[in-house]
């Protein structure tokens, strides 16, 4: 049976040291004066190491803004934010970038692969960003691509790969530097249903480890079965957290009107 709770919700890990991310009372506004828009309205949210957390909700509810805040790409207006035991509110500039480079992996909706790099070179980018030598980084990325079933495609360019293969390269890129938090933005949105299932299966198998958490923003209710928990957002708030097996409840929320 699905287990639901209502806002305010902090998902309830037994031990704070198991937390990959925790935010309390996060608000985020854009613009000022009459054009001011409050996108996040006091979000309480947490994700544990070893789990795959889905973030669902209608368009414009603040999912993308929330993951941007979690990744340290946007600064919240208020609230406290802790990722992997570090308070992101206190990290600034180069230290924040270093933290992100070492600890967070990204999978984007549009893959964002560099068209002039091969699959292996694309997957190696996070390592190159950490000053790993080109040869070593590409070799390591190649091994990750092997695990994702892309042995034969390492030296191909993105334009020579299918959508599913490109997303698998993006998964390799997000995992190659062994981050402890992976943030995925609509990973199946650009894929057909079958390829989407394959990609999610691989992501589930490779990304979720006891030392890593995965946050997936999605509209695709066909992949909810891969989640450990599903947090539903509406109007800049998390209004429901469904534990594993709560697919029906989350589907209903994701499809609900604004």
């Amino acid at each position: 049976m699905p287990q639901s709770t209502s806002q305010p919700v902090a998902s309830t890990p037994a031990d704070a040291s198991e937390l990959a991310a925790r935010c309390e009372g996060i608000t985020k506004e854009f613009g000022s004066g009459q054009t001011r828009v409050q996108v996040l309205r006091g979000v309480n949210f947490s994700v544990r190491l070893g789990e795959m957390m889905f973030l669902v909700g209608p368009s414009g509810c603040g999912k993308t803004t929330l993951i941007s805040v979690l990744a340290g790409l946007l600064t919240p207006n208020s609230g406290s934010l802790e990722v992997l035991g570090k308070s992101l509110n206190k990290l600034r500039g180069g230290r924040l970038v270093d933290f992100r480079a070492a600890n967070i992996g990204f999978i984007f909706q549009q893959f964002n692969l560099l068209p002039t790099l091969t699959a292996a070179e694309n997957a190696a980018v996070p390592l190159l960003g950490q000053y790993v030598s080109f040869g070593r980084a590409v070799k390591q990325a190649g091994e990750m691509l092997d695990r994702l079933g892309l042995q034969a495609h390492k030296h191909k360019y993105p334009s020579q790969l299918s959508g599913g293969q490109q997303q698998r390269v993006a998964i390799a890129r997000s995992l190659v530097h062994s981050p402890r938090l992976v943030i995925c933005d609509e990973p199946t949105a650009s894929l057909d249903a079958e390829t989407g299932q394959t990609v999610m299966k691989l992501l589930r198998e490779l990304a979720v480890t006891p030392q890593r958490a995965v946050i997936v923003v999605t509209h695709d209710d066909r992949i909810y079965k891969y989640a450990d928990r599903i947090s539903s957002m509406i109007y800049g708030r998390i209004i429901d957290v469904t534990l594993q097996g709560g697919v029906a409840s989350a589907s209903a929320l994701a499809g609900s009107p604004n």
């Binding site: 790409l73 970038v97 992100r100 480079a101 070492a102 967070i104 980018v125 960003g129």
Partner: peptide
């Protein structure tokens, strides 16, 4: 630009 933005998000510093 979107690739530079992706590199930035991944953790490549501005000076690089």
């Amino acid at each position: 630009l979107k690739h530079f933005a992706a590199l930035k998000a991944i953790g490549i510093k501005n000076r690089r």
